[in-house]
Design a protein around this nucleic acid. Structure first.
Length: 679
DNA sequence: CTCTCCCT
């Protein structure tokens, strides 16, 4: 399961190279036949003729934008070109990727092309894995990792060139990095330090915008190759995209020969599971058609289920994959001839004024729709059926709203403050978040004690607590819970809970096995709420030393539990480094809920007289998510970890708290909010 | 009466 963007690209265009071009190549005889074949393959890439121009331009420029489609070879080749021609002047070139798998596989690929393995001249650095050496010159890393480094060294002095790849994805990390590298470049120029070159690499989107932002940096275009794809829109708007997707699938299925596979984009787990069931039901009555192999695909699916989509379609069969946007970029499935696109996506939306940060189904952007369409033409010409009209397509936003404009910014603002950027409102963002969002984040950080107003001025500055909080790779609310836990003597327990909250759900919940899973989870449940339940799971897991069959029997996702353990180890190390005493509360779990109440005071809800829950300050009606262990209960007051909007607005992962704890946590906040709610 | 996707 890897992002097959660059590493396998030559295979697609030059099928005759297939055998000499193993994606995860052997490490045998780097100077032998494999190496020769690799060199030939490198020269056959569409980027190769542009080599001289690219080197000369980037040598001359402080900043450059490189536009190239998938398969142009930009990610693997440009770093090598710059190194070979010593544009980096002996120091390190950083190349960022939005995803871990991409950083790792691209580094391995490039190392192999250079006749070595990752961990030498070519290395990578992602969370939990630093595969670099003192002599590393090409350092592939996640954008989040470079951002963390920037807290310690805002001028990125170790690097001569920073390349931001997949910039069109506009992850929150890449967006913050835009501003950070731009400021570092300017500062280094002003103080006579060696130049910092910036290379932004992107697919065809937002080109002028990128260029303008980076002081009118020239745009270098690379030839990309994609097979032609025929695009079909529906004639009339569809009221039910789920139904429309089934109709379209069976139309294709009746006409197309076996072996031509279909990829359907829907929005979420429940929807996908139900679509898969419907497809299987409907296909049972069909004669004289190929047989169907239907696979759901979403991140929460156990990996052994995910891997099934890669299996070769059986002879005389047709593969149908029903996926979330995980199949847009993260996972590439071979053999897809048809794409059916609902035009919908589940996305985070944030309302700074109400502080509501939730997940809901929205219309996709044109950029997303184009990306989905492209999935039909990876290996041969394809067809894309869009379940929306051409007019609807034209009415879609051209680009996905950058993540930074859709999220709670508390974490980003704290990181910027920790880098010494004191006026975040005037920070040079490529797309500015709403001032309300930044102000809401500032207010939250003040209430959490991370920032304080300077006497005689409106300026906010980082407090020692804020500095400590910024050291944790966590949402500030949870960093705060950890700091509190030290004082409340329950740090061991809180580390376990926060670690599990940092990873995808450890409770298995496929709709198929929901009943059995529910019964297995019964013994972990707590009347205190889900956080204590997570602690119970962690304790039980430790008791059996993370035994895999125990996980299986208890419907616990071993993969996520394992990641949680790694997170815990990292958080614990940070605590030790900060000389925090690692204490345990044993059975006295009340202390844990007190810490959670203080950290999550902005996410509180109370039971009103009519039996519904209302958020404490914004007075929005919310419900307990059916997956919560408090679903059957009616506690008077709770704090929740997040909101999800589907048929209702649901609170997910909650704990029972005493309202007095909340008032103590932020008296001014509640007094003010109450007042404004009444007027 | 049910949980987009990534990342430190």
């Amino acid at each position: 399961m890897k992002d097959a963007d660059e590493p396998g690209s030559a295979k697609k265009h030059k099928p005759n190279f297939h055998h000499s071009f193993p994606a995860h190549g052997s490490q045998s005889s780097p100077r032998g036949n494999t190496f020769d074949a690799l060199r030939k393959a490198k020269q056959a890439l569409p980027i190769f003729p542009a080599r001289r121009t690219l080197i000369n331009q980037i040598r001359r420029l402080a900043s450059a934008i490189v536009i190239g489609e998938t398969g142009s070879g930009k990610t693997t080749q440009i770093p090598q070109y710059l190194l070979e021609s010593e544009v980096n002047k002996g120091s390190i070139i950083a190349i960022t990727q939005p995803r871990r798998v991409a950083a790792i596989t691209v580094a391995q690929r490039v190392a192999q092309e250079m006749g070595s393995t990752a961990g030498g001249i070519v290395g990578y650095c992602v969370r939990f894995e630093d595969v670099t050496a003192p002599n590393t010159k090409l350092k592939f890393m996640t954008d989040g990792m470079l951002l963390r480094e920037a807290i310690l060294d805002p001028n990125l002095t170790r690097y001569s060139i920073v390349m931001l790849d997949e910039a069109h994805e506009r992850t929150i990390h890449t967006d913050v990095l835009f501003g950070v590298v731009k400021a570092a470049q300017r500062h280094r120029l002003k103080t006579g330090q060696p130049q910092l070159k910036i290379v932004v690499m992107s697919a065809t989107m937002d080109v002028d915008h990128f260029s303008k932002y980076f002081n009118n940096a020239p745009v270098l275009y690379l030839e990309g190759r994609q097979f032609p794809i025929q695009v079909m829109h529906v004639k009339e708007p569809q009221s039910d995209y789920l139904f429309a997707s089934l109709v379209t699938l069976f139309q294709i299925h009746k006409e197309a020969p076996a072996g031509e596979d279909v990829l359907i984009f829907l929005t979420g787990q429940e929807e996908i599971d139900s679509a898969v069931r419907s497809i299987l039901d409907l296909s049972r009555d069909l004669n004289d058609c190929p047989k169907l192999q239907v696979f759901p695909l979403y991140a929460a699916l156990p990996s052994h289920e995910q891997i099934k989509v890669f299996n070769k379609t059986l002879p005389g069969h047709r593969k149908v994959v029903v996926a979330t946007n995980i199949a847009e970029t993260s996972i590439t499935i071979h053999g897809i001839k048809y794409v059916i696109d609902s035009g919908m996506v589940k996305a985070k939306v944030y309302h700074p004024l109400s502080g509501l940060d939730l997940l809901k189904v929205v219309t996709a952007s044109r950029a997303q729709v184009l990306q989905r369409t492209g999935r039909a033409g990876r290996e041969a010409p394809g067809i894309c059926y869009r379940l929306f009209t051409e007019a609807q397509f034209k009415a879609m936003d051209v680009n996905t709203v950058p993540e930074i404009q859709r999220c709670n910014l508390a974490s980003v603002v704290l990181q910027l403050m920790a880098m010494g950027i004191s006026n975040v409102l005037s920070f040079d963002f490529m797309n500015k978040p709403a001032p309300e969002s930044i102000n809401a984040a500032l207010e939250e950080l003040v209430l959490l004690g991370a920032l304080e107003r300077q006497p005689d001025s409106e300026m906010l500055k980082l407090t020692p607590v804020g500095k400590q909080m910024a050291a944790f790779p966590l949402d500030p609310r949870f960093s705060k819970v950890i700091l509190l836990a030290k004082d409340f003597g329950c740090l061991e327990e809180v580390l376990s809970i926060v670690s599990i909250l940092s990873v995808d759900s450890v409770l298995l919940n496929s709709s198929k096995k929901r009943l059995q899973a529910g019964q297995a989870h019964e013994k972990f449940k707590s009347s205190e709420g889900d956080h204590i339940m997570l602690l119970n799971i962690y304790r039980a897991y430790k008791q059996v030393n993370g035994n895999k069959s125990w996980c299986y029997e208890n419907y616990i996702v071993a993969r996520n539990m394992n990641t949680a353990q790694q997170v815990r180890r990292q958080l614990r190390e940070i605590c030790v480094r900060q000389q925090m005493e690692i204490s345990s509360c044993g059975r006295e779990t009340t202390a844990i809920r007190r810490c959670l109440a203080v950290g999550l005071f902005m996410n509180a809800a109370e039971l009103s007289k009519d039996g519904e829950f209302m958020t404490l300050t914004t007075r929005k009606q919310v419900s307990i998510h059916p997956s919560s262990c408090l679903f059957q209960n009616k506690p008077a007051c709770v704090v929740y970890t997040e909101l999800v909007k589907t048929s209702k607005t649901y609170m997910r992962t909650l704990s029972v708290v005493d309202p007095d704890w909340l008032m103590e946590a932020a008296p001014a906040y509640f007094r003010r909010k109450r007042a404004s709610a009444i007027t």
